[in-house]
Nucleic acid binder design. Structure first.
Length: 468
RNA sequence: GGGGUGUUCGUCUAGUGGUCAGGACAUUCGUCUUUCCAACGAAAAGCAGGGGUUCGACUCCCCUACACCCUACCA
């Protein structure tokens, strides 16, 4: 396809679950790499020891797995490469492209405070940039990069276009802390280079960082990867996604009954488009996805649309995949492990269930007639269908069903004839019948249900409904 | 304070100087029906504001407004 194989990566910080925005970033990287026969790598940015936890790492891995985004090789730990990062910092130091800065954090903080008070730029200029080694004190120091002091720095971004900064607006950022540990900005660049990442697709909160990072690439004489800074996702109110919006982690979307493929489709369509295509398969997404189709404006989450897309995916889902999704949903989000018999019944009924359910929850609701067992206690709405009059009707209907041949055509004619003989609309008959068969006011068609549960069970449920 | 980015129906978006500004979700109203599930049909709804450039701007330039990001020995 192309001469240089594509390598992308997703690099989350393990400080919480897999964020929905992170999930989309991962998806874009995955689509781009997989659609081009490239590699999709996973790197855990765990250099912040205080906030990183193994549980969070696991949650992220689980989230990606649930979403169906598989990565190549083992997930790597950024923290474990700290020595290599420090090595690069020292190389830059010995090449005169970086320097030791002895300014203390207190000094810098005081400077910033004063600058702010006076309304000046808070950009810190270290006085140590050109101080010769001989004059260095014996004190803790950080290593800072020597940023260019004049001219411009610009990066070519696949989404944002050319973005330029004046050199004087950029400071000599720290590469290595006074305790010798590398700073994020250095770690990312070194890791991306070492891992052979060709395309850095990430949130546009990193756009400004890209300028700083490019200085490291340049100083090391490394080729820059292609950058693609994608706009962030906002909450339905247009504000930045935060705790008060709820539903931040992908597992919450799983709990709401969305399917992985539905969410993939929805997320791909958020901030990216391929003409007017709204509902598409993974194969199509893989074929169509390109950086040029990514928009620049932040997008808002819209649960209604998510539901709609998900409904399409449930309907077009492969039965095996759908069964797996349902089992996962039932086990994890409803604390209900389906028995083998329930699974078998579900598999049998899948074709009538999947056509009109937008979420797995809705699907399982409709499956109640096959998942539950006698006697069915009608819910509130179903109970309304079962008054003394309708019970009488069901009672009269029973003998007709006892003698009927159990085929769909036969049942249709039996029920229609019966309704006609009573001079009532079919709806008047189907309502109570539905309530009796499923205990619900919403279910699949009464014929589908009768065919699925069989004659004996149908009669038994009718009996139950008449009883009380 | 400094720097960067963004702004097309309520929402996601198509659109790169000449279009009745298209599609989808949602909404409203209908249709169908065996279901307050679903399906189907129709309607309504938009280029943030102001200046330019041009025969002609949603499209190009400038300004304003608003939003967001960066401005840490966090990532």
């Amino acid at each position: 396809m192309s001469d240089t194989p594509v390598v992308t990566r997703f690099a989350p910080s393990p400080t919480g679950f897999l964020h929905i925005g992170g999930a989309r970033t991962a998806l874009f990287n995955w689509l781009y790499a997989r659609g081009r026969g490239g590699k999709f790598l996973l790197r855990i940015e765990d250099t912040d020891r205080a906030r990183s936890t193994p549980e969070a790492t696991q949650a992220i891995l689980d989230g990606l797995t649930w979403l169906g985004l598989d990565w190549d090789g083992e997930a790597t730990s950024q923290f474990e490469a700290a020595t290599r990062h420090a090595e690069v910092a020292h190389q830059l130091l010995s090449e005169g492209k970086a320097y030791k800065c002895f300014s203390t954090q207190e000094e810098i903080a005081a400077f910033r405070e004063q600058a702010k008070a006076e309304g000046r730029s808070t950009l810190f200029r270290s006085p140590w940039r050109d101080v010769p080694e001989a004059e260095h004190p014996d004190a803790p120091f950080v290593i800072r990069i020597k940023a260019p002091q004049d001219g411009e720095i610009s990066i070519q971004d696949a989404v944002q276009g050319e973005v330029t900064w004046k050199a004087e607006t950029l400071d000599d950022m720290i590469l290595l802390r006074s305790d010798g540990t590398p700073v994020y900005m250095l770690a990312v660049v070194v890791d991306d280079h070492d891992m052979g990442v060709t395309h850095v697709i990430r949130g546009d909160d990193h756009l400004a960082n890209a300028a700083r990072q490019s200085m490291i690439y340049t100083a090391m004489g490394w080729d820059l990867p292609t950058f693609a800074h994608i706009p962030l996702i906002h909450g339905p109110d247009g504000k930045k996604l935060s705790k008060r919006h709820g539903a931040l982690g992908v597992e919450e979307y799983a709990a709401m009954g969305y399917t992985p493929s539905g969410l993939r489709n929805y997320l791909a369509r958020l901030g990216w488009s391929h003409g007017d295509d709204e509902v598409f398969t993974d194969a199509q997404a893989l074929e169509w996805f390109d950086l040029s189709g990514i928009g620049k404006a932040p997008a808002r989450l819209d649960f209604k649309k998510m539901e709609n897309i998900c409904g399409h995916h449930i309907a077009m889902s492969d039965d095996k995949v759908l069964m797996r999704d349902i089992e996962h949903y039932a086990a994890n989000d409803m604390q209900q492990n389906l028995s083998q018999t329930q699974k078998d019944k579900l598999a049998e009924a899948l074709s009538v269930l999947k056509g009109n359910s937008k979420t797995l929850g809705a699907l399982l609701d409709k499956a109640h007639f096959i998942l539950g067992s006698r006697p069915f206690t009608p819910d509130e709405k179903a109970a309304k269908q079962l008054n003394s009059v309708s019970r009488g009707i069901l009672k009269e209907l029973t003998p007709h069903l006892q003698t009927a041949t159990w085929s769909r055509e036969m049942l249709e004619s039996v029920l229609n004839d019966f309704a006609a003989s009573k001079e009532m609309g079919f709806g008047k008959l189907a309502g109570p019948l539905r309530a009796a068969l499923s205990g619900r006011a919403v279910s699949p068609s009464v014929f589908d249900m009768m065919m699925l549960i069989g004659q004996e069970e149908t009669l038994a449920r009718l009996e139950d409904a008449q009883g009380t």
